[in-house]
């Protein structure tokens, strides 16, 4: 791997930024160059939100990901907006319990996972972001599961330590989903 560009996109409140931050932190722990850039402003309060994450062996130029290698879409507007911008040979991972349309782009690998439904079924409401991240970890060689687990310790604050276990469980569900 030299450089991998990720774009996480969905509704504000789905934990898009957190999932991206966890991924970026895992890259940092692995000794890579990383950047994380959120959309900010009114989107944070319920509109569409996205975040660019770059993990690279080299110094990172622009932190803006307009044409991702890996698109993680948690709602339909995000999938429709970004699927055609995804790089040829790239990957799209999307939540098919929310997005009922399928991916029309045919030169990328596509993985559908009913992340929101799995979260509800497993009493992990609100952790669809971690479930879909688990699937991304599984399908993307550039990410190391062990470093994600270590990153979780860094990203979840001590005050919310009780959430650590739930987050890790959610990732595991996504990772093992077939």
């Amino acid at each position: 791997m030299s450089t991998k560009n990720f774009l996480f996109a969905g509704f504000g409140g789905q934990g898009i930024l957190f999932a991206g931050k966890l991924l970026a932190y895992s890259g940092l722990l692995k000794g890579k160059q990383v950047s994380w850039l959120p959309s900010y402003g009114p989107e944070m309060r319920g509109g569409t939100a996205n975040c660019s994450v770059i993990i690279s062996d080299e110094q990172i130029g622009s932190p803006i990901v307009a044409e991702p290698d890996i698109l993680v879409a948690l709602n339909l507007p995000s999938l429709e907006k970004y699927q055609n911008k995804t790089q040829k040979g790239g990957m799209i991972v999307y939540d098919n319990s929310i997005i009922t349309k399928s991916v029309s782009k045919d030169d990328v690998k596509v993985f559908a996972i009913p992340a929101t439904q799995l979260a509800i079924d497993n009493k992990l409401d609100g952790l669809a972001n971690m479930i879909i991240l688990g699937k991304v970890i599984k399908e993307c060689d550039a990410i190391d599961y062990d470093y994600i687990k270590q990153a979780m310790q860094k990203v979840v604050s001590a005050k919310k330590a009780n959430l650590l276990e739930y987050n890790l469980k959610a990732i595991e569900i996504g990772y093992n989903y077939k």
Partner: peptide, 10 residues
Amino acid sequence: DGTIGQMMEP
């Protein structure tokens, strides 16, 4: 600027 202020890096 808004980008440098909002982005995270190591």
